[in-house]
Nucleic acid binder design. Structure first.
Length: 469
RNA sequence: GGUGCGGUGGCCAAGUGGUAAGGCGAGAGUCUGCAAAACUCUUAUUCGUGGGUUCGAUUCCCACCCGCACCUCCA
């Protein structure tokens, strides 16, 4: 079956044809590590992980590269808003390097908690300054650059199809200074910095010598340099958030194609934002936001958030609400319970998933249709409940499907022991119930419920679970 | 101001020119001392509004209303 993806460049779904048969080279814009990544950031990585897993599911090989932006944004507080952790880190005398290290580690903790597969290559921008300087030199040689007081800039008028990703009318409509102060020395509003000079009176923590002067690379340089270094001058799929279309990716294309004269990326996949009803998009600068690490504190498995993301197509804006997250968490619980029941019924899975079965093709077809994970998830639900399919086949299918969904459908849920005091109440209630003192046992059940312990009486005895929240 | 996207049952949400997946919730039943859990069944003649094209539109076209995102580092 052909694998199709929506390509932002052509604004339509296209059959994915890789440069090397059966192998996909994917570049992902990674996090900027001067603060925590919030769950909105993670939506993109979950969607991209879905892409990687869907390709692997269909037998493709995948080479995925992710950058870490650890340079260029650490000079002023204004860039980072009032991030308490960073301010705290500074108070403790940490360097910009330490801050980057700290948040990189935090990012991958979250990333793994959401069951995202590690990229094959993770590249911090600060380790590729040489490559960026070489790229700039190539652009200079071809006449795409000019120098003004604060840096070396890219002359967008020199590239005939500049802005093709976002659309010409969009580029022409850009009003510089609408939200950021205009730079009067720039020749065209869309021109952007390739190399910024350190201010004479300032000693930056992160700065490098270059043929043009001491300073640091422009924000778009890293992705161009690293993507081409690891995946070649033309890559298969370039991923990122929707916000990057008009500026960051547009400029990556300008730099890369200006330097090589070749197509930079054949397919551009953009994930739309997670937004919150009242505050709009979840933003790093807008203050309070939710991180993956905060989910367990609220009583949620991080994978409940993954499930939540899987419920909505990646090209549709996703609105966050606690009510919807709660519904997702319950849905995931239900799916796991269903999977456990299928496993019990089946004993052992069939030797292999039945790839010719209708449900399997429906599942695969949904993935191949521009990564329609919500549809694929519906197929999974329906199939697991379908008793006309032999249980071992259902189990084999669930195992295979979870390689894509990555929801830990069969992982035994570890749970904390109940505090002794509450455990005593549970035993006391069970004793009262056995003695048919229902009044007392119901009182105790109520008391336990008030403390968040839900009682279940099964033929095998009394069990409990913790209420969420 | 420019660009783009979306409005589907109480909530989240997929989808198609031929009569609305799935999940959550809710209701009924089985089970239970009663519950919970589990199981079974039910839950949109209808897809923002008004026109148009068509044998037929939620799906195509036009207008309007509403919401959102991007144009700044941001996923």
């Amino acid at each position: 079956m052909d694998f199709t993806v929506y390509n932002t460049l052509t604004r339509q779904k296209e059959v994915f044809k890789p440069i090397k048969a059966g192998q996909a080279g994917i570049y992902t814009c990674g996090p900027t590590v001067y603060h925590y990544a919030h769950i909105g950031n993670m939506r993109s990585y979950i969607a991209e992980d879905g892409l990687v897993r869907a390709l692997l599911f269909h037998g493709w090989k995948v080479k995925r590269v992710m950058n870490i932006t650890d340079v260029g944004h650490l000079t002023s507080d204004a860039d980072s808003g009032e991030d308490k952790m960073e301010l705290g880190a500074r108070r403790e005398g940490k360097s910009a390097w330490d801050v980057a290290k700290f948040y990189t580690e935090a990012f991958f903790r979250d990333y793994k908690a959401l069951n995202c597969l590690m990229p094959d290559v993770v590249c911090p921008a600060t380790e590729y300054i040489e490559e960026m300087i070489a790229l700039l030199a190539a652009l200079e040689k071809k006449g795409f650059t000019y120098r003004i007081s604060d840096g070396i800039y890219f002359d967008t008028s020199k590239l005939p199809d500049y802005g093709k990703l976002a659309g010409k009318s969009h580029i022409e409509g850009i009003r510089e200074g609408a939200r950021v102060e205009a730079n009067a020395q720039k020749r065209h509003p869309a021109d952007f910095a390739l190399w910024k000079f350190s201010a004479p009176e300032e000693k930056r923590q992160m700065e490098w010598a270059s043929p043009w002067g001491t300073g640091f690379p422009g924000w778009h340089m890293e992705c161009s340099a690293m993507a081409m270094k690891h995946l070649g001058e033309t890559i298969d799929i370039h991923c990122g958030g929707e916000d990057h279309v008009a500026i960051h990716h547009t400029n990556e294309i300008a730099q890369s194609e200006g330097a090589t004269g070749k197509t930079f990326a054949n397919y551009w996949m953009h994930v739309r934002f997670l937004v919150t009803g009242d505050a709009g998009k979840m933003s790093k600068s807008a203050g309070g936001f939710l991180t993956t690490a905060m989910l367990p504190e609220k009583g949620y498995d991080p994978l409940a958030y993954r499930y939540y993301c899987l419920l909505t197509h990646y090209r549709k804006q996703l609105e966050f609400s606690w009510e919807a997250l709660e519904a997702a968490a319950r849905g995931l619980d239900g799916l796991r319970a269903l999977a456990a029941k299928v496993r019990e019924e089946a004993g052992a899975p069939a030797p292999a998933a039945h790839r010719e079965a209708g449900y399997f093709k429906a599942f695969s077809g949904a993935l191949c249709d521009d990564l329609n994970l919500p549809s694929a998830l519906a197929v999974l639900w329906e199939t697991l409940k379908d008793h006309s399919v032999p249980a071992p086949q259902r189990l084999a299918f669930a195992l295979a499907a979870d390689e894509v969904m990555a929801l830990d459908l069969f992982k035994a849920q570890a749970r904390a022991a109940l505090p002794a005091e509450l455990a005593a109440l549970v035993s006391e209630r069970e004793a009262a119930r056995k003695a048919k003192d229902f009044k007392r046992s119901d009182e105790l059940r109520k008391a336990l419920a008030d403390k968040g312990v839900l009682i279940k009486d099964t033929p095998a005895g009394t069990t409990w679970e913790l209420a969420r929240g």
